[in-house]
Design a protein around this nucleic acid. Structure first.
Lengths: 202, 202
DNA sequence: ATCCACCACTGACAATTGTCACCATCGGGT
DNA sequence: ACCCGATGGTGACAATTGTCAGTGGTGGAT
């Protein structure tokens, strides 16, 4: 019996997947969580064979949790199940020790099989997605550039960002200018958008 | 046997829901589509009792499809199933003749029952959500203001927007200024963001 | 007939934003 | 010791953006 931990914030999606996986007679969902913060504690308690993690979660992200989980519970295989096939996500997932990366666009039928394959020691990653990730440029942004971009995502003014990050407005403008240059965009809004789309933030 | 049409863009969610609903012995998913454009033609062909529509879909939105569907196939009950409980969405759904509005945050168990209740003639709408919708201000934006806000969502410059909408840059700036005023925000990025969050766009 | 809301535009002005050159410090590498 | 990249800053300048006061035109109410 393969014991599964399921982390997904949308209750309906989480419930549906749990029922679905429960229908397979070699699979068993032993824990369900709706936030990133619960992942590691719950996993340490129930000791699942596989953790199926969404990325965008309240609290910490599934990718951060993946890193901690592979470190603290190495016998648990970590798989990422996400809406977005962003190159940066794939990169971070692999760096965090994940052995599977599934996109919610794919057919449900693949899911149970992917879990079994991971447990046999295989790595599950769509070849086209792997290729696209390798083709795409790796994250060119420095930590600070990511900070200011993330802070500008809600449309904040430079003064706001500076206040929030305890920097001088001029410094913020310089980082933004650098980020705009590196992303090949024309203003902070576009820069934040493409950085987000590439999985370069958070 | 209740015949259901399912419109949802995420294949995995769509598949999982279909399996789930299929487990109920009085429910039957007779059609699944992944785009908004397919909804009406498919419904006219298979004549379902209930159409369960996501809002954010490729092609036309589930809300637009809902309006057309209630007009062209009145015997088919339309239910909206969406991630976002935006006041504007609820308003539009009801205006389009939908008799159910479900949020993907809720438990899966409710879904089948909600469908049955809708078929008994009830309207399914979380009271708290209904209250919040009534409390929230209705869409204060004019059609043009919505246009320019939608066009500015990708971080475009005013000149870009003007070019795309065949307007003079000054006109665009005036509409944006009006939208900024009405949304109580401080720049076009914030304005577009809050308009989107309230379900005032598209 | 008059009012009002919406549409479309212009021009002027102030504020914000983006670019650039420049300076200083710190921590690795080589 | 030296270079390099990242961090944090200043000041100057140009471009973009936001505000405001106008001008008209349209079409639907009263």
């Amino acid at each position: 019996m393969i014991r599964i931990l399921l982390a997904e914030d949308q209750a309906m999606m989480r419930g549906a997947l749990a029922v679905l996986l429960g229908l397979e007679d070699d699979l068993e969902v032993v824990a369900q969580v709706g936030t990133g913060t619960e992942i590691v504690p719950t996993a340490l308690e129930v000791r699942p064979d596989v953790a199926l993690l969404d990325i965008e979660l309240p609290g910490i992200s599934g990718l951060e949790a993946a890193g901690e989980l592979t470190a603290r519970l190495p016998e648990c295989r970590v798989m990422i199940l996400t809406t977005f096939s962003r190159p940066g996500y794939v990169r971070q997932a692999m760096a965090a020790g994940a052995v599977g990366f599934l996109v919610k666009d794919g057919p449900v039928e693949e899911l149970a099989d992917a879990i079994r394959r991971v447990l046999r020691g295989e790595t599950v990653l769509d070849p086209a997605l792997a290729a696209a990730t390798l083709r795409a440029a790796p994250n060119p942004l420095t930590a600070r550039e990511r900070d200011v971009l993330a802070a500008s995502e809600d449309g904040s003014s430079i003064a706001d960002i500076a206040g929030r990050l305890f920097l001088s407005p001029s410094t913020v403008r310089n980082y933004l200018s650098a980020a705009i240059g590196k992303t090949g965009t024309r203003n902070k809004t576009e820069a934040a958008l493409t950085a987000r789309r590439n999985g370069w933030l958070a």
